[in-house]
């Protein structure tokens, strides 16, 4: 029998030993990121949704053709993170932002490496910074940076 101070331990690893498909829309978007491009989808009503979804959030109709959009865009809202958390994209203070890419009608959420809060504002122009190593994942976009930086 173990002594009181000799707590027995065993590893507990929860894993899912399968791969899943991201589907025809999200999958294509993520593959695009791996190739260094950003694509959205056009709805029947003509709106371009980025990042793309399979169904129009306004009416549930399937979305249509893919549309290439720019890797530059405009900040439509932002929040300054004073103390980044370990799972955040950046380890130094940064801004979360909703970014409407040129050519898109909706905004996507990502991090902006702005340095300090006084440098970012609604309406600021930003551009995507792609990660050096990419795998078909939202983090293939390392973050965005200010266009005039």
């Amino acid at each position: 029998m173990a002594a009181d101070d000799e707590t027995l331990t065993a590893p507990y690893l929860l894993t899912y030993d399968y791969r899943r498909s991201c589907g025809p829309v999200i999958g294509r978007f993520l593959a695009g990121l791996r190739a260094g491009r950003i694509e959205g989808v056009r709805t029947a009503g003509g709106r371009v949704i980025v990042p793309p979804v399979e169904y129009d959030p306004d009416n549930g109709e399937p979305t249509g053709d893919f549309v290439a959009v720019s890797s530059t865009g405009t900040v439509v809202s932002w929040a300054w993170v004073v103390e980044p958390r370990p799972n955040h994209p950046l380890a130094r203070p940064f801004a979360w932002a909703l970014i409407k890419l040129d050519g898109a009608d909706t905004a996507m959420l990502h991090a902006v490496d702005a340095g300090r809060p006084s440098r970012i504002k609604t309406g600021a122009r930003v551009k995507a910074r792609f990660a050096a190593e990419r795998s078909g994942h939202i983090r293939d976009l390392a973050c965005f940076e200010l266009e005039d930086a």
Binding site: C22, I26, L30, P51, S77, W78, A79, W80, V81, R85, P86, N87, H88, P89, W96, A97, L98, M108, L109, H110, A111, H137, I138, R139
Partner: peptide, 17 residues
Amino acid sequence: YYLAPLGVDPNSLAALQ
């Protein structure tokens, strides 16, 4: 796919709003 891998926390989301 788009949000959880960024680790964006509820305080941050509320702040954007």
